[in-house]
Nucleic acid binder design. Structure first.
Lengths: 207, 207
DNA sequence: GCATTCGTTGAATGGTCGTTCAATCAGAAT
DNA sequence: ATTCTGATTGAACGACCATTCAACGAATGC
C-alpha cells in the first residue's frame, strides 16, 4: 500500500470499525480491543493513529456529522424550488441510507454522551444550526403569513430526530415509511398549497 | 429509622443519587462508588440493595418513567376537553419540572443506551405507546377530516423529544419557552379551530 | 438484658481495559 | 544490497471499578 495513503486509510478503517462496535455493543461496552479486532488490526494500533479513545470517538462523530451534512446538502442542492428542497430534506431523512437501525442507533448513542463531551457538543451544535438555518430560510420563502419560519424549522428538525427515536424504541409501530408520512402530514397541514396530502395518508383516514 | 421503611428509603436514596451522578458525569463515567458517596452511604451498600449495577440502572429508569407517567396523566386528568387535555400534555412537557437541563440530560443518557438493554427498551416502549395512544385518541376526538390522528400523535410525541434534544444541544437558541411555542405553532396550524395562535408567535411574525 | 436479625461498613479481590513500548517488519531511498 | 524510516504487533503495566465478604453496629423480639 502506498505510504502516504495509509494514514487516511487506517483512520477511516478504525472509524468505520468504531461505528460498527457502537452499533453492536453500545457506547459503554465499546473497547479499543474490539475496535481493533473489527478493523482486523492489532490492539496497539488504535493509539498509534488516535492519541486516545476520546479522540477516536470525537473523530468518529465528526465523520458521521460530515457524511450526514454532505448528504442532505446534496439533496437540497439537487432540488430547485423551496418546496422541492424541503421535500428533499424530509425524504432524505427517511431514506434507508440514513434512517436505518444501525445508523440511528449510533446517533442516539452519541447524543446520549454529548452533554459531557465538548467536542461532541460543538459538532452537533454546528450541524443542527446549519440544518435549521437552511430549513428556516426555505420556509420563509414559502411566504405564508401566520407561519413563523424559525419555529416551523425547529419543529421540522426536531420531528425527524424524535421520529428516529420512535423508530428505535417502537420499530413495529413506527417504521421509516410511517415516519415519513408523519412529517408529510404536518407539512401538508401547515402549508396545504405547497405540500400535497400523502396518498397513503388519505387512504388511511378514509378507512 | 423504622426497620420496614428503610428498604424503600435506601432504594430511593440510591436511585436519586444515580440520577444525580448521571447528570453530573454521564452514563459512561458513572461508578457505584460515586453513587454511594452522593447518597452519603458506603460503597458496598449499592450491591446490598441492588443485585448489580445493571439492576440499579434499570430501577432508575423505571423510576423516571414512573414519575413522568404520573405527571402527564395527572395533567391530562385535570383538563376537561380534548383540546385542553392536549394543551396540558404539550405544556406539561415544557414545564421546568420536566424540561430542565438535568432531567432532559438524563433522559437522553438513557435513550442512548436503550438499544442494548432490554429492560430499558421495555420501559421506554410502554411509556411511548401510552403517550401516543392517549394523544391519538384525543386528536381523534377533535374530529377533523384530513387529519390522521395516529400520524399526528406520533409527530406530536416526536416533536417533544426532538425539541428536548435541541434544548440540550442548542440551549442558547432553543429554550423551554421557544420549544413550547414551536409545538403550539404546529398545533395551531393543523387545528386552527382548536388551538389559538400563540401571542408570542404572532408578535414574532409581525416583527 | 440477651440473643437475634438485619443494616452497614470499607478493605480486599479479581477482572477489565486504556495505554505504552520494545521488538519486528515492510517499503522507500540511496 | 543496505540502510533508514515509519508501520505494526502484542505482551506488559497500571489504573480503575464492580462485586464480595468478614466484621461491626443497631434495632427488634423475647
Amino acid at each position: 500500500m502506498a505510504r502516504d495513503a495509509i494514514k487516511e486509510v487506517r483512520r477511516e478503517q478504525l472509524i468505520v470499525a468504531t461505528i460498527d462496535v457502537i452499533a453492536r455493543k453500545g457506547f459503554s461496552e465499546l473497547t479499543l480491543a474490539e475496535v481493533a479486532e473489527t478493523a482486523k488490526l492489532s490492539t496497539g494500533i488504535v493509539n498509534f493513529y488516535f492519541k486516545s479513545k476520546d479522540v477516536l470517538l470525537s473523530a468518529t462523530l465528526a465523520h458521521m456529522v460530515g457524511e450526514y451534512r454532505r448528504y442532505w446538502r446534496a439533496n437540497v442542492a439537487a432540488a430547485t424550488s423551496p418546496t422541492a428542497k424541503l421535500t428533499a430534506m424530509l425524504e432524505g431523512d427517511f431514506q434507508r441510507l440514513v434512517a436505518n437501525r444501525k445508523t440511528v442507533t449510533v446517533w442516539y448513542a452519541f447524543w446520549g454522551e454529548t452533554r459531557w463531551r465538548p467536542d461532541f457538543m460543538t459538532e452537533c451544535q454546528a450541524l443542527s444550526r446549519e440544518f435549521q438555518a437552511v430549513a428556516s430560510d426555505l420556509f420563509r420563502q414559502l411566504d405564508t403569513p401566520d407561519r413563523d419560519p424559525m419555529l416551523i424549522a425547529k419543529g421540522f428538525s426536531a420531528m425527524s430526530d424524535g421520529l428516529w427515536l420512535d423508530m428505535l424504541i417502537n420499530p413495529k409501530e413506527t417504521d421509516r415509511d410511517t415516519a415519513r408520512r408523519v412529517v408529510r402530514a404536518f407539512l401538508h397541514g401547515l402549508y396545504p398549497e405547497h405540500f400535497a396530502a400523502d396518498a397513503a395518508e388519505a387512504s388511511t383516514s378514509a378507512a
